[in-house]
Measured scan of single mutants.
Amino acid sequence: MLYRITVRNADGEKLEIVVEMSEDEVRALAEELRKAGYEVRVEPIPEGEEP
C-alpha cells in the first residue's frame, strides 16, 4: 500500500515522502523516526488516488 510520510525536525523543516510498504513496515519506520526525535505523520493513500 502507498503511504505519505511527513517528517519534521526540531527546527520545523519538513520532508514529505511517498512509500510503498506494508502497514507493519511503515509503523516500524515511524517509530524509529520518533525515537530519533522527529515528529512523524503517516497517512495511507487510498487506491486510485494520486500520491
Score class of each variant (00 low, 15 high):
18 V>T: 06
24 D>M: 12
43 E>W: 06
11 D>Y: 13
3 Y>G: 01
21 M>P: 00
16 E>Y: 13
6 T>L: 07
15 L>D: 04
17 I>M: 10
10 A>V: 07
45 I>D: 05
2 L>R: 13
49 E>W: 09
12 G>V: 02
37 G>Q: 01
12 G>M: 05
15 L>F: 09
24 D>C: 04
18 V>M: 08
25 E>K: 07
2 L>Y: 12
50 E>D: 11
36 A>F: 10
44 P>E: 08
2 L>G: 05
14 K>S: 11
2 L>N: 04
36 A>V: 13
8 R>W: 11
30 A>Q: 05
27 R>D: 05
19 V>Q: 02
15 L>C: 06
51 P>K: 07
13 E>L: 13
2 L>Q: 12
33 L>E: 00
29 L>Q: 02
27 R>A: 07
10 A>W: 08
23 E>K: 08
15 L>N: 10
7 V>I: 09
41 R>N: 15
3 Y>E: 01
3 Y>C: 02
35 K>H: 06
45 I>L: 13
21 M>E: 01
46 P>Q: 14
22 S>W: 08
33 L>H: 02
49 E>F: 14
4 R>N: 02
40 V>F: 02
29 L>A: 03
5 I>Q: 00
16 E>A: 09
26 V>R: 00
29 L>V: 08
36 A>S: 13
11 D>K: 15
47 E>G: 13
39 E>T: 12
17 I>R: 04
3 Y>L: 03
33 L>M: 07
20 E>Q: 15
30 A>P: 00
46 P>D: 09
40 V>M: 01
15 L>R: 15
45 I>H: 07
30 A>S: 09
41 R>H: 12
7 V>W: 13
39 E>N: 11
12 G>L: 04
39 E>V: 09
20 E>Y: 15
45 I>K: 04
21 M>S: 03
38 Y>V: 03
29 L>N: 01
14 K>C: 04
51 P>S: 13
10 A>Q: 11
14 K>G: 08
49 E>A: 11
11 D>P: 03
47 E>R: 12
6 T>N: 04
51 P>V: 08
36 A>G: 13
30 A>G: 04
39 E>S: 10
45 I>R: 03
42 V>T: 04
37 G>W: 10
19 V>Y: 02
6 T>V: 09
2 L>F: 10
40 V>E: 00
8 R>K: 14
16 E>V: 06
49 E>R: 10
10 A>D: 06
51 P>T: 11
44 P>F: 07
49 E>V: 12
16 E>C: 04
4 R>G: 01
22 S>Q: 10
36 A>M: 11
40 V>S: 01
23 E>P: 11
18 V>I: 11
36 A>L: 10
51 P>D: 12
29 L>F: 15
2 L>V: 07
30 A>N: 01
33 L>G: 01
50 E>F: 12
38 Y>A: 04
48 G>L: 15
21 M>C: 03
24 D>I: 09
51 P>F: 00
26 V>K: 00
18 V>W: 08
39 E>M: 07
22 S>G: 07
21 M>H: 02
33 L>Y: 15
17 I>E: 02
34 R>W: 04
45 I>C: 05
27 R>V: 08
16 E>K: 05
41 R>W: 06
15 L>Y: 15
27 R>S: 08
7 V>Y: 15
12 G>E: 02
14 K>Y: 13
38 Y>F: 15
32 E>G: 07
34 R>V: 10
43 E>K: 04
29 L>E: 01
10 A>P: 10
18 V>A: 02
8 R>D: 04
35 K>R: 09
2 L>E: 04
6 T>C: 04
11 D>I: 15
13 E>R: 14
17 I>L: 09
14 K>W: 12
23 E>V: 08
9 N>W: 09
3 Y>T: 03
42 V>N: 00
47 E>A: 08
8 R>A: 10
43 E>A: 10
15 L>E: 05
36 A>D: 05
4 R>A: 03
27 R>I: 11
34 R>N: 04
29 L>S: 01
7 V>S: 04
36 A>I: 06
21 M>N: 02
31 E>W: 10
4 R>Y: 05
31 E>Y: 05
40 V>I: 06
14 K>T: 12
28 A>Q: 12
35 K>Q: 08
45 I>S: 05
33 L>D: 00
10 A>K: 13
42 V>Q: 01
35 K>M: 05
34 R>Y: 04
43 E>Y: 11
30 A>D: 02
